[in-house]
Design a protein around this nucleic acid. Structure first.
Lengths: 233, 233
DNA sequence: TATTATTACCATACACTGTACGGGAATGCA
DNA sequence: TGCATTCCCGTACAGTGTATGGTAATAATA
C-alpha cells in the first residue's frame, strides 16, 4: 500500500519555507525544496523554460524523476517554487530621497531582478505575487506609500498600478533573446505599414527603436509615479 | 517524395490574412486559418488552455490531426493565431469626450475584450501586440495622443505605459476562475501575516478585497492617464 | 483529352511529457 | 527487536508535438 504521503510538499501557505528535517543519508544529503527550485531555475536560465521537464530536472539533481514528487505535488507547484525563487533574489534597496525616489529605486531593483532571468518571465507572471519575496516587496512599497501620507485605500490602489505596470513591462521586455528578436522584427515591420491606413503608427515608427529598455522603463515608471503623486494632492 | 510544402501557413507578416483560394472539395469546405483560430479559441474558452492539443483541435474541426499542419507551422503559431483572434474581436469605441476620456474608453474596451476569454490570458501575453487587432488598437491610441498634442516620442512613451499597464492588469485579473480563486485565498492570507514583520500589509489588508475588478482597473487606469497628462504640460 | 503539378489532407511512427501506483531501503522511536 | 516514518525509486501509461511520407482531388498545361 502507498504510504499515504504523510508530510512533505506541505504547502500551507503554498510557499512555506518549512522543510523536512535533514537526515544523514547515504552519499547525497536529502533533497529539499530550495535545491529543487534553484536547480529548476538554473535549467530555465540556461536552456529555456521549455527545457524544464521533470526528467531533466531529476538529472540535474542526480536523482530519479519520481523522487521529486516527494517534495513537490505538481509541476505547477514546481513552477511556483521557481517563481518565488526569482523574487526572493531581488534585494530591496535602502531608502533614500523622497517617496518618489524610493518607489523608483525599488522598482528599478525589481526590473533588474527579473531581467536576470529572462527565460523565466512566463513562469513569473501571476505566480510570484504572494510568495515570500513578493511579500517583502509588497510590504516595502506599502510602507513607503503609507509614510508618504496615503490612506490605506489609496496606498493599495497605488501599489496595484505600480505592480501591474511593472509586471506588464517585464512580461514584454524581460523575455528571452529569441522572443525579443521577434518583437524587434515586429517593430521594424511597423515602418512598412500602409501610410493611409496607419498614419499614426507611421508617424511614430521612426522613433520607436531609439529608446533602450532602461529608458523605456524609466519613462513609463515616471508616468505611473507622477500619476500616483497627482492623486495625493 | 514530400511536396516540399509549396504555399500555406505563409506567415510573412506572421499574421497575414492572405489565405489559399478555396476549392470545392468533397463534403467539408477546406480549412483556413480563421476556422482554426476560432475553433482553438472555443476550446480554450470552454475547457481551458491546457486542453488545447492538436488532436483535440482536429477533433473539433472534424479533421485528422496532421491536417492542421498544412495551415499552421507550429503549435506556437497556432497560439499566436488565437491571440490575434482575441484582439481582433475587440471593437474600438467611437471617439467622445476629451483625449483622456477617449483613452479610458478604449482601454475599458480592451479590458472587456480580454475578460471575455479569461482562459486565454497566458496565450495573449506578449503575443498579440503586433497582430492585426493589436495594430488597430495601437493606431487608435497613437492617433488620440498625437491629436492631443504629444510629440511622436512622447506619444510612444505614453502608449507604452498604457499598454504595459493594461497587459499587467489582464495578466493578473483576467485569468480563469480557478486562478482567481487562488489569488483570493492569497489575499485572505495577507490578514494573517505577523503584524510586527508586515505592518504595512496588515494595515492595508482590510481594504483589499473591497474593490471590484472594474473599480481597481478604473482607479489604476486613472493613475496612468493622469501621469500621462502631467507629462504634456 | 491526356499529362503533369499543385493543393489539401491524412496514417503511421517516434521521442518525450507528467504522473499514478506501488515497492523498498534507510532511519527514528518503542 | 519491532514498528512507523521518511525518502527515494522502477515501472507503466495515456497523452503530447511533430517528422516523414503517401494519396486523392483539383488546376494547369500539352
Amino acid at each position: 500500500m502507498t504510504p499515504e504521503r504523510t508530510e512533505p510538499h506541505i504547502p500551507a501557505p503554498p510557499w512555506s519555507s518549512a522543510r523536512p528535517r535533514r537526515r544523514a543519508r547515504s552519499a547525497r544529503p536529502p533533497l529539499d525544496r530550495e535545491q529543487i527550485a534553484t536547480a529548476g531555475l538554473r535549467i530555465v536560465d540556461q536552456e529555456g523554460a521549455d527545457a524544464l521537464s521533470l526528467r531533466r530536472l531529476a538529472d540535474e539533481l542526480g536523482v530519479a524523476p519520481m523522487s521529486i514528487y516527494w517534495h513537490v505535488k505538481d509541476k505547477a507547484e514546481l513552477l511556483e517554487l521557481i517563481g518565488h525563487q526569482v523574487f526572493a533574489e531581488i534585494e530591496i534597496p535602502p531608502l533614500s530621497g523622497d517617496w518618489r525616489d524610493q518607489l523608483r529605486d525599488l522598482h528599478r531593483a525589481m526590473l533588474a531582478g527579473v531581467l536576470r532571468h529572462p527565460n523565466a518571465t512566463d513562469i513569473l507572471i501571476g505566480r510570484a505575487r504572494y510568495g515570500p519575496g513578493g511579500l517583502a516587496l509588497f510590504e516595502r512599497i506599502l510602507s513607503i506609500l503609507l509614510a508618504a501620507g496615503f490612506s490605506p485605500e489609496a496606498a493599495f490602489d497605488a501599489y496595484s498600478s505600480l505592480y501591474l505596470f511593472t509586471l506588464g513591462f517585464t512580461a514584454t521586455a524581460g523575455r528571452s533573446p529569441e522572443f525579443r528578436e521577434i518583437q524587434r522584427q515586429g517593430v521594424l515591420y511597423l515602418g512598412t505599414l500602409p501610410e493611409d491606413e496607419f498614419p499614426a503608427i507611421r508617424a511614430v515608427a521612426p522613433v520607436i527603436g531609439r529608446r533602450s529598455l532602461d529608458e523605456q522603463f524609466e519613462l513609463a515608471l515616471d508616468v505611473v509615479v507622477e500619476g500616483i503623486a497627482a492623486r495625493l494632492t
